[in-house]
Every structure is written in C-alpha cells, then in structure tokens.
Design a protein around this nucleic acid. Structure first.
Lengths: 204, 204
DNA sequence: GTCTATACACCGATAGAC
DNA sequence: GTCTATCGGTGTATAGAC
C-alpha cells in the first residue's frame, strides 16, 4: 500500500507524455495539414524518435482517434461552459451558439476537417471517441427543446447551415470573415423557418 | 498542306488519350478516394505503365488540375442547359437550381470534395482551370439578378447553405437523402431572408 | 508513345539492445 | 521507455532503349 503513490505518479507521468504527443500532433497538423501528420514529424517535435511513440499509442490511427475524441470533447466542454451564461431570448441564444461554433471551426480549419470531413485516408472513429460526438449532438437537441424549437428538421438544417458557413469560410477566405459575418443573418433565416414564434410557410 | 489532315488526326488521337486518362483518374478516385489517386493506379486502368502518363501530363498535379477544370466546366454546362427551361417563379427556379446542385454534389462526393474542399495536399488550381469556377459564380450572380434577388449577401449565403447540405449529406449519410430532402425548406428559408418579396428582419 | 529500369524520398511498423 | 537498425512497401519522377 505504501507503493500506491508511486504507481499514481507513474501513470500521471504516462498521461503527461501522451498529452505531449497529442499536442505535438496538433502542431504538426496545423503546420503541414493532415497529410503531413507522420510519426517522424510528431516524434521530432516531442523530442523522440519515431518508434518510441509505440510505447504510448498502438498505431498512427490510434493517435488520430485520440485527436478526434479530443476535438469533440473540447467542443462539448465549450458548450458546457456556455450553458451557464445562456441568454433567455432564443435568437440571442442561437446567435451565441453559432458564433462560438464558427469561432471554433473557422479558427481551426484542420480541426474542423477532422470533425466534419474525412481528411485522414482510412480513419474511422472508434466507438469510444465517437461517444463525444454523439453527446454533442444530444446537447444540441436539448438546447432546441429548451428554446422552444420543436421542428424535427431543425437540428439537421442547423448543422448544415453552420457546416456550410465554416466550410466556405475555410475554403475560400481562410482567416477572414466573409462568411463569418453572415452568422446573424443565418440565424434570422433559420428562425424564420423553424422558429417558435413563426409558422413555416409550406407544411409538408 | 496535304499533311494537314494527318496533323489533325494526330492531335485528335492525343486528346482522346488525354480523355481516357482523365476518365480513368475519376474512376480511381471514386473507388479509392483522393488518397488513392496514384500514377500506377491510373495507368493500370488505362492499360499503360505509370511513366507513360508523362507523355500526356507533365505531372500528377497537372492531372488533378485538369480534373478540377473538368468538374467546374461540367457544372457550368449543366446550368447552361438549365437556362433553357428555367421557371419564371423565383421559388421554383431556386428549387430547381438547388436540386440540380445537390444532385451533382451529393451524387459524387469526391467531385464535390475537389470543388469545395482541399482533398489533394499541395494542389492549387491553375489560373486556367480556375476560370471555370469563376464563370460559374458569375452565372449565379446573373441568375439572382434575373429573379430579383438583389441582396449583396445573397450569393454567399446561398453557397454556404448548399455547401452545408452537400457536406453533411456526404459525410453523415452518404448515398441517402437525410439532408437532400431538406432542399425545399432550405429554399424557403433562404427566400424569407433575401427574397424579392420579403424585407429582411434586421437591416444592418 | 510506350516501355523497363531505376533513383530518391518517405511511409508505418517491428526486433532487439540498453 | 527509448533507442538504433532495418524491413517491406508506397509514392513521383527521370533516363534511355525500342
């Protein structure tokens, strides 16, 4: 039992190294894109040799998988924090959510690509890391419930709208605000179609 | 001068081979994604050896560039054909345009990726092949003029909306219609914000 | 125009010493 | 845990014969 603190320190050290590797991986991706993410590049940044990474991740894909989980977990955390200061008014709330999303996605194109596109050839998220993505979607549903948006198509329309703004922003005006500044109009547009105060034009 | 027909036949044959190579490249991409597009794979499909491709394209990127130009040229051609049977009613016209776009983009995810994302590391379209993309955008502006949509933000909102629907469809429900079926609602939404008959809620 | 042969660089992964 | 050495494979591109 006296050995317990030692074990703790060891596993803590292990997690620390894992974290360092993931940070290095993100740095490499932001510098060279997903095609530049190689074991050698990551290892060099950590100050290791490539094969040493296998002491912490079982393969290249395991690193990508951890990054995928991380990206969604951090997004989820950002929205968790947002819950504590969510405006009452639905339009203001949607505006806040949309702006935070665009900030996250347009502010970090490679991260956006990992979450919403398929930038790594053969990578499929593990059930474990996919959990965070599912949680995030469930949170969106609860959010819509709370502000009185009950239209069943609303979540899919919303994700399409935000994904489109982020995608266009990153592809055609990276770092700019050409699409980012359209967020308020997109929110108005969205609310006029599915909003709690408005009936949609053509019920189907 | 008697040699002229011979020259014509030769250049025609050359163009034919070029075409065969591009068709093979598309087939490879649709089967294995953009990361699977290699000279060996393309050559094998054409019935050549990899180095022989250099007789027709100066590099791998030259092939991708030709594909980029092709994709936009074909899109432009589709809309050219559409012009001859465009409905008078703005909503109907937008609906037609949106459905054709989604059909093109969701029906061919890899093509969509080339046109709207950056699936090939290091590739930047040449000025030449980019021309088709510009033409397509100019056509969109003329179209909006014609149906009375004068809002200066309209084109960017429109492209974001369509890009988002296509991107979500391809990433989360490939081959399905989960987002594709939302096109009519997206059009309604769009028109209620920028439409010729409606004033927008909050002018900025 | 198309071929074979090959140069050169780089990838992920494993074996085995320390 | 981290290292060196190395295997087997992939990719683009060029040289030179036919």
């Amino acid at each position: 039992m006296l050995g317990a603190p030692n074990v703790d320190r060891q596993t803590r050290r292990r997690d620390e190294t894992r974290r360092e590797i993931l940070d290095a991986a993100w740095a490499v991706v932001r510098e060279s894109g997903w095609s530049g993410l190689t074991q050698r590049a990551v290892a060099e940044r950590v100050g290791m040799r490539a094969p040493s990474l296998y002491g912490h991740f079982s393969s290249q894909m395991a690193i990508v998988d951890a990054m995928f989980g991380q990206a969604w977990a951090e997004t989820d955390a950002a929205y968790d924090e947002l819950d504590t200061r969510m405006p009452e008014d639905p339009r203001e709330a949607l505006l806040l959510v949309a702006n935070v999303w665009l900030e996250l996605m347009a502010g970090d194109p490679e991260r956006n690509a990992l979450m919403n596109q398929r930038p790594v050839p053969g990578f499929t998220p593990s059930a474990d890391s996919y959990t965070y993505a599912v949680q995030s979607m469930e949170r969106l549903h609860r959010f819509f419930d709370r502000i009185g948006v009950t239209d069943p198509d609303a979540p899919d329309l919303w994700t399409a709208l935000l994904a489109g703004l982020a995608s266009q922003q990153n592809a055609n005006d990276p770092g700019g605000e050409r699409w980012r500044r359209l967020v308020p109009r997109a929110v108005d547009m969205f609310l006029s179609e599915v909003g709690p105060t408005t009936r949609r034009r053509k019920p189907r």
